[in-house]
Amino acid sequence: MMTRLYCALYARALMLSEALRRRMLRVLSAWLAFISPMAMADGDIADILNRFAEGSRSGTTSVLVMVQLAGVCGVIGSVFAAKGMKNNPQIKLWMVALGLVTSLLLLGIPELIKRGQTQMGMTPVSVG
Score class of each variant (00 low, 15 high):
M1P: 02
M1R: 05
M2V: 04
R4W: 07
R4F: 05
L5Q: 08
Y6V: 08
Y6C: 03
C7F: 10
C7H: 07
C7Q: 14
C7E: 02
A8P: 01
Y10R: 00
R12M: 06
L14A: 05
M15T: 03
M15C: 09
M15Y: 10
L16S: 13
S17R: 09
E18D: 09
E18G: 06
E18Q: 05
E18C: 09
A19N: 07
A19R: 12
A19T: 00
A19D: 04
L20P: 00
L20A: 11
R21G: 06
R22A: 07
R22K: 13
M24N: 10
L25A: 08
L25Y: 01
V27K: 13
V27N: 10
S29M: 12
S29W: 12
S29H: 10
S29N: 11
I35M: 12
S36T: 03
S36H: 00
P37I: 02
M38E: 10
M38L: 15
M40H: 06
M40E: 08
A41E: 04
G43K: 02
I45M: 12
I45E: 14
A46M: 14
A46Q: 15
F52Y: 10
F52K: 12
F52R: 15
A53V: 14
E54P: 01
G55Q: 07
S56M: 15
R57C: 11
G59R: 03
S62W: 14
V63K: 15
V65T: 00
M66N: 15
Q68H: 14
L69G: 10
A70R: 03
G71W: 09
V72M: 06
V75A: 00
A81V: 02
A82S: 08
A82E: 11
K83E: 06
K83F: 10
G84E: 04
M85V: 05
M85D: 04
K86C: 02
N88M: 08
N88G: 06
Q90K: 07
Q90P: 04
Q90R: 11
I91T: 12
K92T: 01
L93Q: 01
W94I: 07
W94S: 12
M95N: 07
V96K: 01
V96R: 08
V96C: 03
V96Y: 10
A97R: 06
L98E: 01
G99Y: 11
G99Q: 01
G99V: 10
L100N: 00
L100V: 09
V101R: 07
V101S: 02
V101C: 06
T102D: 04
S103E: 03
L104P: 05
L104R: 05
L106T: 03
L106C: 06
L106S: 11
L106V: 01
L107S: 00
G108L: 05
I109L: 15
P110N: 06
I113T: 06
K114W: 03
R115Y: 11
R115V: 12
R115H: 12
T118G: 03
T118N: 04
T118I: 08
Q119H: 11
G121Y: 00
G121T: 14
G121I: 03
G121N: 09
M122V: 09
M122G: 04
P124Q: 06
V125W: 06
S126N: 15
S126M: 13
